[in-house]
Computed example of a mutant assay.
Amino acid sequence: MTTVAVLDYGSGNLRSAVRAVERAGESRGVEVVLTADAATAMSADGLLVPGVGAFEACMQGLRAVDGERIIERRLIAGRPVLGICVGMQILFAEGIEHGVRSTGCGEWPGTVEHLQAPIVPHMGWNTVQSPAQSRMFEGLEDERFYFVHSYGVRDWKLEPEGTAFVPPGVTWTSYGGDRFVSAVEHGPLWATQFHPEKSGDAGRRLLENWIATL
């Protein structure tokens, strides 16, 4: 039986995430568990990391359950991880909110910062610019997804003053004249800035695509 652990570190729409994965995995008999236990999170076939709220608060919660180490160890072993919303943001090098600079998990370069758009938060349905031959967006090339956020990664750099470098598997979204990373598909590590659990049939299909990799 395929198992998915939803990491409970005190942040995110946990029950909504559990129900969404249960629905997406119903035909495959996927078992979903909400847990803060490191052994359970490590042994599951897939780990989903949700997140809602401030970057620093989410990092504090993640560290409290040894979440950084869990994610790192899973990725070293090639075991799938999916981050959602702030659960995606904390995978980057750092976040800046209200003048506070916080260190993230550092799985990817980049800084989470305030969106430069006339109206924030960015709330509602929007399209994405997914790369060709994406497994994450297979069958979803023309779909829209649901966003609720005021911060995002607006540039992808190896270093704060380095040369912009955009690897394959990065999806972008435009909003209010600004642009930000809306998804990343990088080996066993996938993440979305939008909420698949709030994105109807499109979100369900994306979760089905992820489950198919477990």
Rank of each mutant, 00 (worst) to 15 (best):
G10S: 13
S11E: 03
N13I: 08
S16K: 11
A17L: 03
R19L: 10
A20P: 00
A20W: 04
E22L: 07
A24W: 01
R28L: 14
G29I: 14
E31Y: 05
V32G: 00
V32T: 09
V32M: 06
V32I: 13
L34C: 04
A38L: 02
T40K: 02
T40E: 13
T40P: 02
A41F: 02
A44H: 08
P50D: 08
G51D: 06
G51N: 05
A54Q: 12
A54E: 13
F55A: 01
F55V: 03
A57F: 03
Q60K: 13
Q60V: 13
G61D: 01
R63F: 05
A64W: 12
A64K: 14
D66V: 06
D66H: 15
D66F: 11
G67M: 09
R69I: 00
I70S: 00
I71W: 01
E72C: 07
E72V: 10
I76Q: 15
I76L: 14
I76P: 01
G78W: 06
V81F: 01
G83K: 01
G83Y: 01
I84E: 00
V86D: 00
L91S: 03
E97P: 04
E97T: 12
H98W: 04
G104D: 00
C105H: 02
E107I: 15
P109K: 10
G110C: 05
V112I: 10
V112D: 01
E113Y: 08
H114K: 15
A117C: 09
I119P: 12
V120F: 02
P121R: 08
H122P: 01
M123E: 05
W125Q: 05
N126D: 14
N126G: 13
T127I: 07
T127P: 03
P131H: 04
A132L: 07
A132T: 06
Q133A: 13
Q133N: 11
S134I: 11
M136K: 02
E138M: 04
G139D: 09
L140W: 01
E143D: 07
R144Q: 13
F145M: 10
F147V: 08
V148S: 02
V148C: 07
H149E: 08
H149S: 11
S150C: 06
D155E: 14
W156A: 07
L158V: 09
L158T: 11
E159T: 12
P160Y: 06
T163P: 01
T163V: 14
P167G: 10
P168T: 10
G169T: 04
G169F: 01
V170F: 08
T171K: 03
S174H: 14
Y175T: 03
G177P: 05
D178E: 13
D178F: 09
V181I: 15
V184R: 05
H186W: 06
Q193R: 11
Q193K: 02
F194D: 00
F194M: 10
H195E: 14
E197M: 11
A202T: 12
G203Q: 08
R205A: 07
L206S: 05
L206N: 02
L206K: 04
W210A: 04
W210M: 13
I211K: 00
A212G: 07
L214I: 14
